[in-house]
Structures are given as C-alpha cells and as structure tokens.
Simulated scan of single mutants.
Amino acid sequence: MWKQFLVIGLLAVAAAGAWHFAPWRADGAVAPHRDASVPVMLAPVRSGTVTEAVDAVGTTRAREAVTITVKTTGIVGTIAFEDGQTVTAGTPIIRLDSAELEAAVASAEAELRNSRQALDRAETLSKSRNVAQAQVDALRADLEVKTAAVAAQQARLAERVITAPFAGTLGIRQVSLGALVSPGTPIVTLDDLTRVKVDFNLPEILLSRLSPGLALEVRSDAYPDRAFTAVVTSVGTRIDPATRSVNTVAEIDNRDGPLRPGMFMTVRVQLSSNPAALLVPEQALVPLGTRQFVYMIVGGRAARREVTLGMRMRGEVQILTGLEAGDLVVTEGTQRLRDGVPVEVQEAGATPAAT
C-alpha cells in the first residue's frame, strides 16, 4: 500500500513542476518568452603597420674570388705574402726561381744590341752608297726578329712572378719555399671581401616584383643581434623547373669585414609596407566555408559582417574590406553567437555569467 502512495506523490510533484514552468497561465494566456543574453567581450579595430615580406635562405660568396696558381713549372724561390694579408692589384705573391731565364733574357738583349749597332752602321754607309739597300733591309728585319725574341724572353720571365689580379684578402698559403709547382698548382686564395654577395632563390610568383635595387634584411647565426642591409644586384634569367624558383643575387657592404664566403644567411625580402592597415585580433574571425566573418553589436544584438582578409601576423590579421578603424568586434563568445542574438557586453577581466 505504501508503494502506491509513493507513486501518487511523485506524479503530483511532476505535475506541479510542469504547471509552474508551462508557457501558459490559468486564464489561457501564453506567458512571455525571454531570450538568454550571450556574454561577449569586444575589441576595437586598430590601425597599424603591415609589412608584406617573404623569407628565404642563402649563401654568401666574395664579390671577386680566385685561387691563384702558376702558369709554368718551376721552383718556389720567394714567398712574398703572409696568411690573411690584404693586397692591392699587382702585388707580388711568389717568385719562381728564374736564373736560367734571366740569363736567356740577357743573351737576347745582347743580340738585340749587336743587331741594332749593325743596322746603324749599315744605314750610315748606305748614305755614301758603300752598302747596298738590300743589306740594310735585311739588317732591319733581323733587328725586328731580335726585338721580338727579347720580348718573348721577358714575357716568360714575367710569368715567374705571380701577382694579385685584384685587390683583396689572401687566404692560407698552400706551398712552401723550394717546392716544385706546375700549372694549376694552388698557391693561395684571394677574395675581395669589401662587398659580399648573397645567392638565394625566391618563388617565381614574385618575379614581377623583383628588380635590382630592392632592399633586403639579411641575418646570420654568427651575429644574432645584427641585421645586415643588402641590395638586389641581379635576378636570374631562368626559372628552375624543379623548384619553380628564380636565382637572386644581393650585395652587402662588408668593409668592416664580419662576413666570410660560404656563410648561411636568412634573407627577408620586404615587398610592401602599409602604415595604416586595419587590424583585428585573430580570435574575432568566424570562418564559414571559404568566407570570413566577424560579429559586431548593433542595438544590443549580434550582427554578423563579412570581411576580406589581408596579411596575417602573430595574434592579429589585416582587414581589407568590411570594417573601419574604431569599430568594435566580438573577440570572446563568438562560438555561441548567431545573427540577431541578444548579447551582454562584459569588461575585460570579468567572469562570464553562468549558462
């Protein structure tokens, strides 16, 4: 019997609750329905600088670089430089032993003097017709031959002195005094480090925006707190079909000498800068398919507005169309919003209302 009374009691409580929360009254009138407000937080659309840039990696090389070698076989007789020495164009680097060639030059010069004297005598005698003109012509031709022979011997002698082809910095010596060297034997490297080139590749889509004179920011892990300014000097004439990129070369003023050939560099190419770009917090965006929206508050209710995005940065995104500077957009509570839903604006740091 007591179980029947318990069931009747539960049914009575359920009926009372249904009567209390029903949307009608005893007189048959429907009770008014109130929508729950969604707590939200707002942030203003601000103006800021947006820089469009692309990053790449590159490798440095000297403005001019060569490995100095000899043109002829010989014994190293003199070493005229120190490792790391800065030299000007024409500075002697090494001299090969040239005693034999010096003797050959002296002999050729003596023959040249004799030939010139013989010609002078013949020309004097030809004026009194004591020497035939044909003999004078033969002596003149012999003089030319002897002159050419001297020039050839002097050229061979000059090859025994190896000089710097341009101004730069010498590397580490690779030969010793008395060593036998032959054509192609490396003596030392020479690099012009007053300006350093950086080789890097950029996507072909940027080809129309690249041109000599474009300024770049270049950094090296060797100098983490320093940014180097580079200027594009040339853009490749061909696109790599494998990577769809174009080779680009920039130069850095390196007169103070911190950079060396072969260094790994990170390159930032600044394509444009907009100092009055419109920016909103990234969390304000509400994506729907391929379109982007934000919520604004109009008359106490949420109003969805479509926007066009530009550059993305850390925590912010550029707005190209759809908003103006100073507009307020919803940054927290967007997940529960729908167009026209009433909202309750909360101050930053406030605890959202329980729902």
Rank of each mutant, 00 (worst) to 15 (best):
G213Q: 09
L214H: 06
L214R: 09
A215D: 07
A215H: 07
A215N: 07
A215V: 08
L216T: 08
E217D: 13
E217T: 14
E217S: 10
V218N: 06
V218H: 05
V218Q: 06
R219C: 12
S220A: 12
S220M: 08
D221Y: 09
D221T: 11
A222S: 06
Y223P: 08
P224Y: 13
P224L: 13
P224M: 13
R226K: 06
R226A: 05
A227Q: 10
A227L: 10
A227T: 13
F228V: 05
F228I: 05
T229A: 13
A230V: 03
A230Y: 03
V231F: 11
V232M: 07
T233W: 04
S234M: 03
V235P: 03
V235E: 06
T237E: 08
T237H: 08
T237C: 05
T237K: 07
R238Y: 12
R238A: 12
I239Q: 05
I239L: 08
D240A: 02
D240F: 02
D240Y: 01
P241R: 12
A242V: 15
A242W: 13
A242K: 15
A242G: 15
T243R: 11
R244G: 06
R244D: 06
R244Q: 15
R244A: 13
N247E: 08
V249T: 12
V249G: 05
A250C: 04
E251V: 10
I252G: 06
I252K: 08
N254F: 09
N254T: 04
R255T: 13
D256S: 11
D256I: 12
G257V: 11
L259C: 09
L259V: 05
R260L: 10
R260C: 05
P261F: 04
P261Q: 05
G262D: 08
M263L: 09
F264N: 14
M265N: 10
M265P: 00
M265Q: 12
T266S: 13
V267Y: 02
R268V: 03
V269Y: 03
Q270L: 15
Q270D: 15
L271T: 01
L271V: 03
L271G: 00
S272Q: 15
S272M: 08
S272D: 15
S273W: 01
S273Y: 00
P275K: 02
A276G: 07
A277K: 01
L279D: 00
L279E: 00
P281I: 03
P281R: 10
P281G: 04
Q283E: 15
Q283A: 14
A284N: 08
A284T: 07
V286M: 04
V286I: 12
P287T: 09
L288F: 11
L288Q: 11
L288D: 14
L288R: 11
G289F: 07
G289A: 10
G289D: 10
T290K: 14
R291L: 15
Q292I: 07
Q292R: 08
F293A: 02
F293C: 01
F293Q: 02
V294M: 06
V294L: 08
Y295S: 03
Y295L: 02
M296Y: 03
M296Q: 15
M296V: 14
M296R: 15
I297L: 09
I297P: 14
V298P: 04
V298G: 04
G299V: 00
G299Q: 02
R301D: 00
R304I: 14
R304V: 14
E306W: 00
V307M: 01
V307A: 00
V307F: 01
V307Y: 00
T308Y: 13
T308C: 09
L309N: 01
L309I: 01
G310I: 02
G310Y: 00
G310E: 02
